[in-house]
Design a binder for these strands. Structure first.
Length: 785
DNA sequence: GGCCGGGGCATTTTT
DNA sequence: TGCCCCGGCC
């Protein structure tokens, strides 16, 4: 351990060693930020801090886990496990459970995930008989979330003139009432949403000074990762804990702030000096991840942002290839083009599939790439779908767990009161809801004593409700005697879930069975792990805490499989890949049409692209399509403004963006590349079809010195901007060998003509998407040559 | 209670 | 275009 400082460069070491006062570590992309944090913690431990005196906050479970692993390796697992290290939400959940009585909650409160809270908002909007076209639940949810992140309670909201005026202007004056009802309903249900965990922590610290003092005393040193992503609530919590001793170190990169839409406030990091006077700034500027070319290209992009902390990220790695810009005719062709590139690079340079990532701005873009990769038998995995715990059957089972722990949980109750079916239909549930609202009690209170609250249902229904109530109570009684796993087993069997899921062997049920099995395995693992750590009896509530704060990124079983990764740029933050394709670089897509109203938003989009490019270690490819299906319509898409932001010295451009002979000459003369890919000019995209027009074997195109053979006729045709020709409807105007450009499939060569009149067809060998038969009557294409 | 079809809609989403 | 939600129908 004593030598660990030798693993650090000068600025990293300075950042690790300075612990006398507040410090800000500006960590450029790929600059070894996690290393600094882990070594700093190790150093603090070595300097005499006890592990429980150190609070280290991250944003993701994954980051927390990684850091814990790395620290364990330096100081040992038992010391590492005593650090207060975790996500904001998990750490403050722990504190809130301990002091829940001080803020009017029971310690077994539920955590509502986003869909729970959206459902509740939906219910409230319905109950208030509002138009959900105007009061869109997702929008209201975002407004409430923003309010909470800014620490605005319902009372404060109603008193804020500017908020009320804004709601009136947007014709939604009742948002304040929805918020108030939502707040009360969560309280009645004994539930907190994600934002509440931070908001109530602030309330706890504000109203119970002894608690705040207690923790600020315990946490003698506070470290925060990814500080640029903190919102006001988080910023304030940290300040409440650190303001006296000032032993705080925050790490972040303003250039990678991409979550402002969730309340992250970049000025938290830009203005850190104000909150922590004397705050010392360290800059980690050496990028160890990417080639010099990639770093230079990314820098030339981010330079265009005005609001940022000045820094000079540099790399001492190989120069590497220019960032390649590819142009496709359509979204469809873009997919095939990228798929072809991946197969090609894999063959030429010996990459594995897992060396590639395709990053896009929106999830909707993934479909086209899935299709193209599948057609070419390229294995892939997509991140960002539904997480395991968000699957319906899992949520159903977890809802039983939640009811067992906290029966007032409204969303859980609504989920399971009639699953599996027990004859309590929507009408009854609605009546229970109305009755509960009338008496200002939770749904469960009505369910437990329907007579007392005069629930207007017949005796048959009354009886069914009682059966449900008894069922839940039996689970609650068992909870006192059994550990979490045995209890869960009982719940699954006696609730009827087991019988329901194992009733037949339809594919859906088989998958449900697997998921149930996986949940139970996970629970068992959770229990035995905790028991090993010395916990005598593991309760469901512990498991639920973990489950409600878990996301899909947390259990990726396929980590070691050789597959191309596909994800949104947002999801890629913090990751790195040998070769990165950033796709869909078009105006109104990247930057998104929704983020163009202010320079501030444009800057965030630019940072987003910066994040994407800096994920790449060796090669980075940016692509755009000229037309794209948007809302069912083919839409012309101009290339993204960000392509023009970047210095062309670091790019290899398609001719349509000004790539020219002069520049290629420069490229040939001045740059040396480690692998052939860097030579691939943008319009050079080959089909895998062996008999593709004029282009024999694509690999033979690149000779040993990495130089290209002269352009073939076809490729000359491609690199010229094709002039627009009128759409051909006469078969006589076409001949075999003509080059056409199809709206969707891109460029290709006619290899076959058949039929006549309305049945006239042509066979076209497209350069990227293979051979297609087109019915002349319908096909949208132009003849180029 | 489940299935089908029409209408409306269409960012990003660490917890 | 394709998905999701809702309402209507069996």
């Amino acid at each position: 351990m004593e030598n660990f400082l030798e693993d650090l460069n000068k600025s990293q070491r300075e950042a690790v060693l300075y612990n006398e006062g507040p410090s800000l570590v500006i960590a450029g992309a790929g600059s070894g930020k996690t290393r600094v944090l882990t070594y700093k913690i190790a150093y603090l431990l070595q300097s005499g801090y006890a592990p429980y005196n150190i609070l280290a906050l991250t944003f993701t479970n994954k980051a927390a886990r990684e850091m814990k692993d790395r620290i364990s390796r330096i100081v040992g697992a038992d010391i590492a496990s005593r650090l207060w290290m975790g996500t904001f939400h998990s750490i403050f959940l722990r504190i809130l459970r301990a002091y829940s009585d001080r803020i009017g909650f029971a310690s077994d409160f539920t955590i509502y995930d986003s869909s729970d809270s959206r459902n509740l908002i939906k219910t409230i909007i319905k109950e208030m008989a509002l138009d959900d076209k105007l009061y869109k639940p997702a929008t209201i949810q975002a407004i409430i979330s923003n309010a909470k992140n800014a620490l605005i309670t319902p009372g404060a909201y109603a008193a804020r003139k500017e908020l009320i005026d804004a709601d009136i202007r947007s014709k939604k004056p009742l948002i304040k009432d929805i918020y108030k009802t939502y707040w009360n309903r969560c309280a009645l249900a004994g539930a907190m949403d994600f934002d509440d965990l931070l908001l109530y922590t602030n309330i706890l610290f504000r109203d119970q000074p002894d608690v705040r003092e207690h923790y600020s005393h315990i946490f003698r040193f506070v470290l925060v990762d990814e500080y640029q992503d903190t919102n006001f609530a988080q910023h304030l919590i940290v300040h409440q804990l650190a303001k006296e001793h000032n032993h705080i170190c925050v790490v972040g990169d303003d250039a990678q702030s991409i979550y402002s839409f969730r309340g992250a406030n970049i000025s938290n990091i830009l203005n850190l000096q104000t909150d922590y006077p004397g705050c010392k700034t360290f800059k980690l500027e050496q990028n160890y991840r990417s080639t010099r070319m990639i770093v230079a290209a990314a820098n030339s992009l981010i330079e265009k942002n005005k609001e940022q902390i000045p820094k000079h990220v540099f790399s001492d790695n190989d120069e590497g290839s220019r960032v390649t810009v590819l142009s496709a005719y359509s979204d469809f062709e873009e997919g095939y083009m990228i798929a072809n590139h991946i197969s090609e690079m894999r063959v030429i340079s010996g990459f594995s599939y897992s060396d590639f990532a395709i990053l896009y701005r929106t999830n909707a873009q993934s479909r086209i790439f899935e299709e193209a990769l599948r057609k070419k038998n390229i294995p892939y995995k997509i991140y960002g779908g539904l997480s395991f715990y968000q699957r319906k059957e899992i949520k159903d089972i977890v809802a039983y767990f939640r009811m067992t722990v906290n029966p007032h949980d409204e969303e859980a109750l609504k989920r399971i009161i009639n699953y599996p079916s027990r004859g309590i239909g929507d009408t009854t549930v609605r009546k229970i809801g109305e009755c509960a609202t009338l008496h200002n009690v939770s749904l469960w209170q009505v369910v437990s004593d329907p007579i007392a609250y005069a629930l207007p249902v017949n005796n048959g229904t009354l009886n069914k409700v009682k059966v449900f109530k008894d069922l839940i109570e039996s689970f609650r009684e068992a909870a006192g005697e059994k550990n979490a796993f045995d209890l869960a087993e009982q719940i699954v069997k006696q609730s009827g879930i087991f019988a329901d899921i194992f009733s037949d062997r339809t594919p859906e049920n088989l998958s449900r069975q697997e998921n149930l099995q996986e949940l139970m395995n996970g629970l068992q693992e959770f229990c035995s792990l905790r028991e090993e750590e010395g916990n005598e009896s593991v309760s469901l509530i512990d498991f639920l805490s973990e489950v409600s704060l878990a996301t899909d990124q947390d259990n990726d079983k396929e980590e070691n499989s050789d597959k191309v990764t596909m994800m949104t740029v947002h999801a890629s933050k913090g990751l790195e890949f040998t070769n990165v394709f950033v796709v869909g670089l078009e105006e109104d897509l990247f930057p998104s049409a929704m983020c163009k109203s202010s320079e501030r938003e444009i800057e965030e989009e630019r940072r987003l692209l910066y994040v994407a490019i800096t994920r790449a270690e060796k090669n980075c490819v940016l692509s755009y399509a000229c037309t794209r299906y948007r809302n069912g319509q083919p839409t012309a898409m101009p290339p993204s403004r960000f392509l023009k932001d970047m210095d062309t010295r670091y790019l290899s451009l398609p001719s349509s963006l000004g790539g020219d002979k002069e520049k290629e000459k420069y490229e040939e003369d001045h740059l040396s590349f480690g692998n052939a890919f860097g030579r691939v000019r943008s319009r050079r995209v080959w089909s895998d079809e062996p008999d593709f027009a004029n282009s024999k074997n694509r690999i033979s195109r690149i000779n040993n010195s990495g130089h290209y053979k002269p352009l073939t006729r076809l490729e000359q045709a491609i690199s010229k901007e094709p002039e627009v020709t009128s759409t051909i409807k006469q078969i006589g105007d076409l001949q075999i060998g003509s080059i056409i450009r199809h709206e969707r499939f891109g460029q290709g060569r006619i290899v076959e003509i058949s039929g006549a009149g309305d049945n006239a067809k042509i066979g076209v060998e497209f350069e990227n998407v293979g051979k297609k038969q087109l019915l002349l009557k319908f096909a949208k294409f132009t003849v180029i040559k």
